[in-house]
Write a protein that binds this DNA or RNA. Structure first.
Length: 290
DNA sequence: TACATTTGACCCTT
DNA sequence: AAGGGTCAAATGTA
């Protein structure tokens, strides 16, 4: 701790607070977004179709990356600000335990302090990823919970590795929809590395895993549609189904090894790089987040 | 029938 | 006490 060389910039008279730094980064990203928009308008004037389309694709990548980074920072900002300012806890209608169903489920309530799988202390948040396709990461996940999060428009979905029992794999991930844009963005928080060696071999093997009827040799099925049904949006998945399920799957073939086995490149390499850069920059400024 | 998901309850941290 | 994370019975699906 306390290993933050402050020599990288000229010594500021009064060091700005982490939230100021974040705001500054957000502001820069906003400017970048505006510039990207200008650029797009200019690019649209290119007469040759092929060149224009290629350039537009690049601009689109830039725009997406900027928007993703902005979204990450803003969601963090909201988290911090809402935790420090006592906002509006009234909420009037929702104890955290939910209560969406009216049918009272007869359930034994004798569940006393059970052994908890992982105490909060030993969890290792690995990465946060913004993606349009949280379901496509080639691991086998099993959903174990869903929670309405305060001040969040969408519930958070909780998944653990499908081999958490067989291989004692501690990997988990939380998926939270960030917005309701046309392709909605999802913030995926990866917790703990996979210790199971059960990554999908490759995407091009089109054969379905025959619904993995046997748990022993079940070579991982991808996110089942049902597992994403509630928050990720059934309609969207249906759309993908109709349009051939592979629309939103970007190429996975780049520098996969550079990323730890648990961090999947939902984004294009460029987007990934930019995002990691922004996040590490922010972390450096805001004190490592710990 | 077996397995995966849903969802209210429970537990822990803040 | 509130909010977030997890458990596990009930439910859904192939």
């Amino acid at each position: 701790m306390a290993m933050r060389p402050k020599s990288e910039m000229s010594p500021p008279p009064a060091p700005p607070s982490p939230s100021d730094q974040r705001d500054a980064v957000i502001e820069e990203l906003r400017k970048g977004s505006q510039l990207a928009e200008f650029l797009r308008q200019q690019v649209e004037l290119i007469p040759e179709d092929s060149r224009r389309d290629a350039a537009l694709a690049n601009v689109s990548d830039i725009t997406t990356a900027l928007a993703s980074s902005l979204s990450v920072l803003q969601s963090e900002k909201e988290q911090y600000s809402s935790s420090s300012s006592s906002y509006d806890p009234g909420h009037a209608s929702g104890p955290s335990g939910g209560g969406m169903r009216n049918g009272p489920v007869a359930r034994s309530r004798n569940r006393k302090a059970k052994h908890r799988r992982g105490t909060y202390g030993e969890e290792l948040p690995i990465k946060e990823i913004l993606t349009e396709a949280p379901e496509n990461d080639r691991f086998h996940w099993r959903k174990y919970g869903e929670k309405k999060i305060l001040h969040a428009d969408f519930p958070r979905l909780y998944y653990r590795c499908g081999y958490s029992d067989e291989h004692k794999c501690p990997a988990k991930k939380y998926v939270q929809q960030q917005n309701s844009r046309d392709p909605p963005m999802f913030l995926v928080t990866l917790i703990n590395d996979h210790t199971c060696d059960t990554l999908f071999p490759d995407e091009d093997q089109d054969q379905p895993p025959s619904s993995s009827s046997s748990p022993n040799n079940s070579q991982v099925l991808d996110f089942s549609k049902a597992s994403l049904s509630s928050a990720v949006g059934v309609s969207r998945l249906k759309k993908e189904e109709d349009a051939d399920m592979s629309v939103t799957v970007p190429s996975y073939n780049y520098t996969y090894d550079e990323l730890s086995s648990s961090s999947l490149p939902f984004l294009s390499p460029k987007q990934w790089e930019m995002e990691m850069e922004v996040k590490s920059l922010f972390r450096r400024h805001s004190g490592d987040g710990s």
